[in-house]
Design a protein around this nucleic acid. Structure first.
Lengths: 211, 211
DNA sequence: TAGATTGTTAATCGATTAACAATC
DNA sequence: TAGATTGTTAATCGATTAACAATC
């Protein structure tokens, strides 16, 4: 089943978690798993895992559970990461460069194909996959390479403006590291990563006398 | 009100979002806001914002809304970021160094005070706040500086082992960038950042003919 | 005062879980 | 077969929203 209607977004959010755990199991040589085992490992109930997966098809077998390789194939297809997505990074500061050098994208469906920054000193840096271009080349690059995904690693002050340009150029998904809420047209997807928000969520639970 | 019982975790997760937006409003010179305005900005219903905040106290006024400075003070107190938390980073690769150089921690309640790595070539690097130490000094450093929070930027293969050592040394909150689920004792908090999971969540919604 | 907006209740909505027949 | 585990239903649980009296 390629795509089903009316799947809750909260379920979609769990599929990459399943995919990640299954990949790890597979790498360790495991060939079958059960909803119970997977749930134990992830802190999710087995009923929830079965229910989530059954929204997309009957991937398991009574008595034996799920064949990991088959489930991996199915999940990658559902999430559309069975083929590689080209991706650009905007901002070649510390964070942008760390992302550009990150080795974990390719095996999971993504490849950085370009980095954009205004600093002339950075233009031309790169590796086999990407190099740093000036911001003035961003829009034509997106068109030419048909890029649909961008990672945003620019300061908060310019993030909205850059986002507007990305959307105009055809970008449909933005992973933003800028700590502000972006305004985008419907149909454009945005996800945010802000480490401080995760930290603040944890300090709530820490005893203050331990600070 | 310092701390209330039985607050759902999902509410705690929204408080940093409110805090971030209110900080931005405050920086732009705004002194009052309403649940409606804040909700519009964040894509959250006004009823939910009022309900969330009312779990901790009566911070608003009928007719006029919320005084931003007062609400900021309260939220910082609730999240315990009205004082600064010292933090260490384990792993001085591209990501660890990008985090160590990130300017956004201090103004929001956190300060990097040390970075740990096994590579002798990296030891001694640093700035006014932190320098890179060998892993063999990690445990004593955590004790001496009474550090409770660590950011984990090591490869997936060593993440669990490092996590165990951190917890033994007294770390109570871990922000992990390693793409595996860590096993920690109850009472230790873990949050995960994995950019690929965010990307995969978005590709589900992208039309495949646009790839 | 009149208008605006809170805090809170009750209703609604949606997500999770328990349980089990089906079946490998 | 006997044991294990799925997919699914119904019940439970929890979160969100609508509505409004209170009141600034």
């Amino acid at each position: 089943m390629v795509s089903s209607p009316n799947i809750p977004d909260i379920v979609i959010g769990r599929l990459p978690i399943y995919l990640r755990a299954l990949t790890q199991m597979s790498q360790q040589g495991q060939t079958f798993t059960s909803s119970h085992e997977l749930g134990q490992r992830l802190g999710i109930s087995s009923a929830q895992i079965r229910k989530d997966l059954s929204l997309f098809g009957d991937f398991g077998k009574q008595g034996t559970g799920y064949q990991i390789s088959h489930l991996l194939t199915q999940l990658k297809q559902i999430l559309q990461v069975n083929h590689e997505w080209p991706m650009i990074i905007v901002g070649a500061g510390d964070l942008g460069r760390a992302l550009a050098h990150y080795r974990g994208f390719v095996s999971r469906g993504f490849r950085v194909v370009g980095v954009f920054d205004n600093d002339p000193a950075k233009i031309g840096m790169g590796n086999g996959d990407w190099q740093v271009y000036g911001m003035d080349q961003m829009v034509s690059f997106i068109h030419k390479r048909r890029v649909k995904i961008a990672m945003l690693a620019v300061p908060a002050e310019t993030a909205q403006e850059v986002s507007d340009r990305l959307v105009d150029a055809g970008i449909r998904a933005i992973l933003s590291y800028a700590p502000i809420t972006l305004v985008v047209p419907s149909g454009v997807h945005v996800q945010y990563i802000d480490p401080v928000m995760h930290l603040q969520r944890m300090t709530y639970y820490l005893k203050s006398d331990e600070r």
